[in-house]
Amino acid sequence: MARILIVDDAAFMRITIKNMLQKSEHEVVGEAENGKIAVERYQELKPDIVTMDITMPEMDGLEALKAIVKLDPNAKIIMVSAMGQEAMVRDAVMSGAKGFIVKPFKEDGILSAIAKLA
């Protein structure tokens, strides 16, 4: 059982991920709609795992990842990327993301990813 923070600017994606996770034993402890809020929520909620969208307003997922890893080098962050974001994902992986999933993903994909880190 892992406590999970979902970060995505699109409510649609947040709900989708949440719906998928709610079928598992994991608990969604919070959501954030941009990087800034994600960093705050991370400190506040201390989630086990974060799913992090990359393209977001205010502060993107990459900056948020770096900020969170700086605060907690053991943070487990899974990037949620769309096709064609290789460069960003590369940067994220080099900066401490534990891995990434590519949109569109299926329930199995995200659940197995979480299970690996939980």
Binding site: N34, G35, K36, I37, V39, E40, E58, M59, E63, A64, K66, A67, K70, S95
Partner: peptide, 18 residues
């Protein structure tokens, strides 16, 4: 990355207001 983090904190404060 430390200097980036500083600006991140600053930005986070702005976000709290927003």
């Amino acid at each position: 990355s430390a200097s980036k983090n500083n600006t991140a904190v600053k930005k986070a404060n702005e976000a709290a207001e927003a």
